[in-house]
């Protein structure tokens, strides 16, 4: 595959979901012949390694600012394909305002939020997506709704926005879900290519290191506990394709 640098050693931890997401993006870029005119804008966090394994132009934005950077890029080169690759800290915490406004505006870019429920790169601190009673270094007694609020349902927040052309929560918890995630991601890419508006996919992903879990356990937790609170679901599909 020309787009994906399979020979490189990942700097992601064993079992991390970021590698799967990168692979899916690379496959879709190849299948749709997008490589020549793709630009990926990555955030700060483990998602920032995404482009290291991709043979595409990439911009590393400041923390939380991938979406306005992608917006400005798309204004300048409207025929190029632009997607952001952000973690839930980058996208749902420090970059939430930018996400909401780009979605509402219908900016024709694709935002991929890899949601592992923690700030992975800095050592697994609480993010807006951390589940109730989940322990992290910054909520050592477990997330408490009274103190920290509930996990932020970012996808649900955008359901009423007319600018959104594709909106789904996907997961890499099982091989079946990975195949489903690729289909969802394909629809999101298509929404941009057909200039239908803003497209967003939230991809639930494990962080075995940040969660202090064995890899296998982390995938089980993702499939069960996380999906109970944040269900895998397609919310909006104006593309009309199968997903």
């Amino acid at each position: 595959m020309k787009t994906f640098r399979e020979e490189k050693n990942f700097s992601w931890c064993p079992g991390c979901g970021h590698g799967i997401v990168a692979r899916l993006c690379a496959e879709l870029i190849e299948e749709n012949n997008l490589r020549d005119r793709t630009c990926c804008v990555v955030g700060i966090g483990c998602g920032g390694f995404h482009h290291h394994y991709m043979e595409i132009d990439a911009l590393e934005a400041a923390h939380g600012r991938s979406i306005p950077v992608a917006t400005g890029y798309k204004l300048g080169l409207p025929d190029n394909f632009v997607y952001t690759l952000q973690g839930d800290g980058d996208c749902a915490s420090i970059g939430l305002a930018e996400l909401m406004h780009a979605a509402n505006r219908g900016t024709p870019i694709t935002v991929i939020m890899v949601n592992n429920g923690v700030f992975g790169m800095t050592g697994g601190q609480m993010s807006p997506e951390t589940l109730i009673s989940q322990k992290t270094p910054t909520c050592p007694f477990g997330r408490d709704a009274k103190l920290h609020g509930n996990p932020l349902k970012v996808s649900e927040m955008m359901q009423e926005m007319d600018g959104v052309a594709y909106l789904a929560r996907l997961s890499v918890a099982t091989p079946t879900l990975v195949r489903k995630a690729k289909k969802g991601l394909a629809q999101a890419f298509k929404a941009q290519e057909e200039k239908l508006g803003f497209s967003f996919v939230e991809i639930l992903s494990p962080c075995p290191t940040g969660w202090n879990m064995k890899v296998v356990d982390s995938y089980q937790r993702l499939a069960k506990e996380v999906a109970e609170i944040l269900p895998v679901k397609e919310f909006i599909n104006k593309v009309g394709g199968e997903s």
């Binding site: 600012r65 306005p68 950077v69």
Partner: peptide
């Protein structure tokens, strides 16, 4: 382009500048 904040303004400008314009 009227952005939602000056944070967005300067970062939109960053993205535009990256295209060489």
């Amino acid at each position: 382009f009227q952005a939602e904040s000056e944070l967005a303004v300067i970062n939109c400008l960053t993205g535009l500048a990256a295209t060489g314009q």
